[in-house]
Each structure stands twice: as structure tokens, then as C-alpha cells.
Amino acid sequence: MSVQQDVRPSLQTEGLSKAFGGVQAVNGATVTFHEGKVNALIGPNGSGKSTFFNIVTGMIAPDSGTVRFRGQDITRRAPHRICAAGIGRSFQLCRTFPRMTVLENLLVAVRPAGLSQLVGSSQNRRQVERARELLRRVGIDHLEGSLAQDISYGQQKLLELAGVLMGEPGTILLDEPAGGVNPALIGRIGTLVKELNAEGRTFIIVEHNMDMVMSLSDHIVVFDRGAPIAEGTPSEVQQDPRVLEAYLGV
């Protein structure tokens, strides 16, 4: 149970809107996610969750509204600058660099400053060590030399997560971490999220798997037609009539 008074805002949006052609994908969404918590963003298909994610991470420019991260306005910033601000993300259909090795996939996320990125080797020993550590942590260190296209889908999901962690983000957005993976792996990803959260990382998760959402999250935001219709703890959300209505389409 989260105690309401010690809530600090992590990511906040205000009046965020985006239309595609005639479709209002995100419609004046004002949402606050809590620092240090596992936040979940749920909602029926087509409720604008993915578009919301893409706006927040700078992939799509909003028509109107603002995005703040720890009080700082990051609206319309380029994705790499949002990443530098401390937000890491995964993609809905897991995306890795197919023709690069597992290890190289992680080393992409290393950001040395200035000229050293032009001349210094990407195989910097300290970074390689850190990358191996992360691969061990997610359990795919035995595959470091394989090309990403040659490993299984589940392994790619873990690789993607390790890649996100490589950038040492304080806040991590996961787009359907349980999508397309078997139950055993779902459990494993859940455990990882809990561990990482305990170390102080904030999570914002879009997910359809309700078991996972209810067992993991501290705070849930329910989206329908591009805007939040309810939020609260798992038990609060589960009893909210508006949520049931949105899901059952009454």
C-alpha cells in the first residue's frame, strides 16, 4: 500500500493531446506517475497508451500539452535528450539491433562525452564489464557473442531490458513487457522489476496481463479514449465501476 502523503511526482503530463487524421489518440491527458514506485498504465485496446508512451519519450510530437519529468519541462525534446534526462524505455514489440551481437547491443547505450566517442574504442573494458554484469543479471550472459537476430524472442526481451538498464535510467518505461512471452518468463521479468524497484528505480508499465499488473504495481492509471478515467491502488482500481465499464464496453 502506498502512503499518499509521501508521493513525489516522477513523470507528469498536463493536457496532453495528439490526433492522427480524425482520430484523437490522446485527448487532454493529465497524469502523474509516482517516483520510486511501480506505476502501471492500463486500458482497453486503442485507448492511446502506446501513443502516450511515444509522446512522453519524444518519438511523437504532441499537438498540445506538456510533459514534465521531476519538475523539468521535457515536452518535444529529442528522444536521446529525454534518455539523457534519465528515462529509459522498451518497445511494444521488442526491438533489438538484429545484426549486432548481444554485447554490442548493450554497448550502444554507453555515452562517453566529447571527442572520446569519436576515437575511443566502444569495447572499453569497464563498459564491457558493466554490460556483462547486466547480461548476467538478466540471465543471458552465455549469449554475448550471438547476433541478436539469432536468439529467441524471450531472450530478446531480456536483452532489451538490459540495454535500457545500461543507460542507468532512474525511470523505466516498459511497453508490454509480458507481451508474447511464456508464463515462466513473465514471472522472471516481474522479479527483475521488483528487484530494480527496490534499488530505487521508478517503473511505468503498459501491460495487458492483469495478473502481472495487479501483483506488481503500487499505482495504476486507467486509460480510455486517450485520457485517464481512474487511478489508484490495484484494489481501488479493481472496484472502480468506470474501469469495469471501459473494459467490458457496457
Binding site: T57, G58, M59, A78, P79, H80, R81, C83, A84, G88, R89, F91, R95, T96, F97, P98, R99, M100, V108, A109, R111, G163, V164, M166, G167
Partner: peptide, 12 residues
């Protein structure tokens, strides 16, 4: 390989 992904990982 994947420009969106590279951007999200912080590549300018």
C-alpha cells in the same frame, strides 16, 4: 539497424 530504438537508448 533501428533508428527509433537507437534514439531511445540515448544515441544523438
Amino acid at each position: 539497424e533501428d533508428e527509433d530504438k537507437a534514439e531511445a537508448l540515448g544515441v544523438p
